[in-house]
Amino acid sequence: MMTSPLRKLSSLLAAGLVFSLVGMGSAEASAQPAPAASQSAPPSGKLAATANPLYKTGRLADSHCQPGDLPSGSTAAYKSFLTKMTNCLNASWTSQFRKAGLSFSKPRLRIITRKVKTPCGAWSTGADGLYCSGDKTMYMLITKDQLRQPFALGIARLMAHEYGHHVQQMSGIWNYYWAARNSSGTAAGLQLSRRSELQAECFSSVFMSTIADDMPIDQQQWDGVVDWFRKNGAKSWPQNDHGKGPTQAAWMERGYKYAMPGACNTWKASAGNVT
């Protein structure tokens, strides 16, 4: 497994947690519906967030993910890793939505080697990835720094977080989130944003837990990533819209421990748990 000093995590781990209602872009992996005849449209209203059917589906399906090595200096290997990780995420979440009886389509993946301006807005400084819900696309940026010293665990975690926003979009959670946020004041809006971001981070950790044996994930290295977030997770954001570092770490630990979407219901959590 590739390793990287934790000081290298500042851009890869904290950045990329960007989302938008507007999307664009050509796809390298086109969206396709999950094949389940009993699927239904996502729920609506507050219950879509607080009592979503995904919460009752148990442990996230294991995709037996083996994305392979990520050597330094190879753009082809990097692209292969991103594609395989997306396929693993697709397999796990397609199965989970099927268990929940919810309709699902896979997100698109667009791999870029330079920052691009999209209808989602200007590319955020330092970001290595983002998800746009308008076209259901994950944009993953391969930088020269990442090519020189790629960190497989950090890249996988980032992708799983962006995919977590897609899960929110497809499950109806974001329908409630955006409606509530658009009618809220500043303080309430920031809390809603924290609930959304902390849930995506928890979903990410749920997935990372299910692939821990197959990837494999070194426990000491994972603990180091969580500790990095505990100390630095809030430093990249000018306002508290992602949660304080210890709060981010707590939801990461919860998702990794229980490995099920039901552990990530930030929408029913007390205000003190989404600070």
Rank of each mutant, 00 (worst) to 15 (best):
I173Y: 01
S40V: 12
I155H: 04
I217L: 15
T50V: 10
G262R: 12
G164H: 01
D145W: 04
N265T: 06
D135V: 02
L13Q: 02
F81G: 01
T137N: 12
A212P: 04
V22M: 15
A27E: 06
P71S: 10
D62G: 06
V206P: 02
I173L: 09
S184T: 07
A76N: 11
A200K: 01
L141Q: 09
S4Q: 02
W251M: 06
A100Q: 06
S92E: 02
K244A: 14
A249Y: 02
A250D: 05
P150Q: 06
Q32S: 14
I155S: 02
F151I: 05
T94I: 04
L130P: 00
S205E: 05
F19D: 02
Q32C: 12
R108P: 04
A187L: 12
K231Y: 10
E28Y: 04
M252Q: 11
K8M: 06
M85Q: 08
T247W: 05
A76W: 10
D145T: 13
G73Q: 09
L147W: 09
S124A: 15
S133C: 04
W267V: 07
A51K: 12
S95W: 06
L153G: 02
A48G: 09
F19W: 10
A263N: 05
A31I: 10
T75G: 06
Q169R: 04
V22E: 11
A15E: 14
N52Y: 07
M260F: 09
L82P: 01
S38L: 15
M138W: 00
L6G: 03
A41Y: 11
S63T: 14
V18C: 03
Q169F: 05
F203G: 00
A61W: 12
P53S: 06
S30F: 14
G68E: 11
P53I: 09
L9R: 03
L70W: 05
T3G: 08
A14S: 12
W93A: 02
K244N: 12
C202R: 03
K106I: 07
T75I: 11
L130M: 05
C65L: 15
P107S: 11
A49I: 11
N90H: 12
K79Y: 08
G255P: 12
A61K: 04
K99R: 15
F81D: 00
R7M: 08
P107Y: 07
D145I: 03
M159V: 01
A41W: 07
S63L: 09
K136A: 08
K8Y: 07
L54Y: 08
T143P: 01
K257H: 13
W174Y: 13
T50H: 08
S133I: 00
S204E: 03
A15M: 07
I211L: 13
S44K: 13
T57M: 11
G16Y: 00
A179I: 00
M159Q: 05
M170P: 00
K235M: 14
S133T: 05
I173D: 04
L82V: 06
S196R: 05
A29Q: 08
S204V: 00
A122P: 04
S92V: 02
A200N: 02
R195Y: 04
T57L: 08
S270M: 08
A51P: 01
L192A: 05
A37M: 15
G16W: 00
P150T: 13
L130D: 00
F97G: 01
Y139L: 12
S80W: 02
I111L: 11
K257F: 14
